[in-house]
Amino acid sequence: MIWTLPNILTVLRLLAAPAVAVMFLYFARPWADWFALMLFVGASVTDFVDGYLARAWKQETKFGRMLDPIADKAMVVIALLIVTGLSGMNPWILLPATAILFREVFVSGLREFLGAKAGLLQVTQLAKWKTTVQMVAIAVLFARGLFEHYFGMQTIGMDAELVGRILAGEEEDAVGLGWKYNGAMATHYGGIVLLWVAAALTLVTGYEYFVKSLPYLKENEEPR
């Protein structure tokens, strides 16, 4: 293995995947949310940087090509588990997350079965968009936790009627409840919409890979 900068960034992204979960074990919220969000966004950025540098500097390696999709899948899978847990198993998050996880396991199984012919399942442009939308959706859902935390903390001691009047503009909003509430709503629904879009792209690309592999799945028949 050659320790080029692109390969180092890929390894760091792989290590960041479990580190996102560890943040919620050793830090209280909202610090855990802040650290997890920054770690996830930083790792997501390296997904684009390492590929660009590898091509620009002609430093593409077999190790990098092998590890890059593993790091991406580890990041997405672990982050989805965290987001699903933090949402209280909200079905609007659980269903697309399940579809994404199912596809990742299914395609990984296809690649393992194809073995030396796994090169057939080259990453398509649509698959790259899928990964991008997944990462944006997860980052938005992590941000939702921050808005909800600060809104909840600053409404302690207030009854629902007072909060309602402040949000309606009938009372002075001295602590910025309005923008925190709007931020929570925007990241909640925006994150869910993006996650469903990511799930749709995930299933489409998974189906494309399955169709490409069909000739190799037929019994007693070799593809031409």
Rank of each mutant, 00 (worst) to 15 (best):
residue 2 I to A: 09
residue 3 W to H: 08
residue 9 L to H: 01
residue 17 A to Y: 04
residue 19 A to Q: 10
residue 27 F to D: 08
residue 28 A to Y: 09
residue 28 A to D: 15
residue 30 P to D: 14
residue 35 F to V: 15
residue 38 M to H: 08
residue 46 T to W: 03
residue 50 D to A: 01
residue 52 Y to G: 03
residue 57 W to R: 14
residue 60 E to Q: 12
residue 60 E to T: 13
residue 64 G to D: 08
residue 67 L to V: 06
residue 67 L to F: 12
residue 67 L to Q: 08
residue 70 I to V: 15
residue 73 K to G: 08
residue 74 A to W: 14
residue 76 V to R: 00
residue 77 V to N: 08
residue 79 A to V: 07
residue 80 L to I: 13
residue 82 I to D: 02
residue 84 T to Y: 06
residue 84 T to K: 06
residue 85 G to K: 09
residue 85 G to W: 13
residue 85 G to P: 07
residue 86 L to K: 15
residue 88 G to M: 11
residue 95 L to A: 15
residue 97 A to M: 07
residue 100 I to R: 00
residue 101 L to E: 01
residue 103 R to K: 14
residue 113 F to D: 00
residue 119 G to R: 14
residue 123 V to N: 01
residue 126 L to D: 04
residue 127 A to Q: 00
residue 128 K to N: 03
residue 128 K to S: 07
residue 129 W to S: 01
residue 130 K to I: 10
residue 135 M to I: 07
residue 135 M to S: 03
residue 137 A to V: 09
residue 139 A to P: 05
residue 140 V to N: 01
residue 143 A to V: 11
residue 143 A to F: 10
residue 147 F to C: 15
residue 149 H to R: 09
residue 150 Y to I: 11
residue 151 F to N: 08
residue 151 F to L: 14
residue 152 G to Y: 02
residue 153 M to C: 06
residue 154 Q to E: 15
residue 157 G to P: 03
residue 160 A to D: 13
residue 160 A to Q: 13
residue 160 A to E: 12
residue 161 E to T: 07
residue 164 G to R: 15
residue 167 L to M: 05
residue 168 A to I: 08
residue 170 E to C: 05
residue 171 E to I: 04
residue 172 E to G: 08
residue 176 G to Q: 12
residue 179 W to E: 02
residue 186 A to C: 06
residue 189 Y to F: 12
residue 189 Y to K: 11
residue 191 G to S: 05
residue 193 V to K: 04
residue 194 L to T: 02
residue 195 L to R: 04
residue 195 L to S: 03
residue 204 V to P: 05
residue 207 Y to T: 00
residue 210 F to S: 01
residue 211 V to W: 11
residue 223 P to H: 12
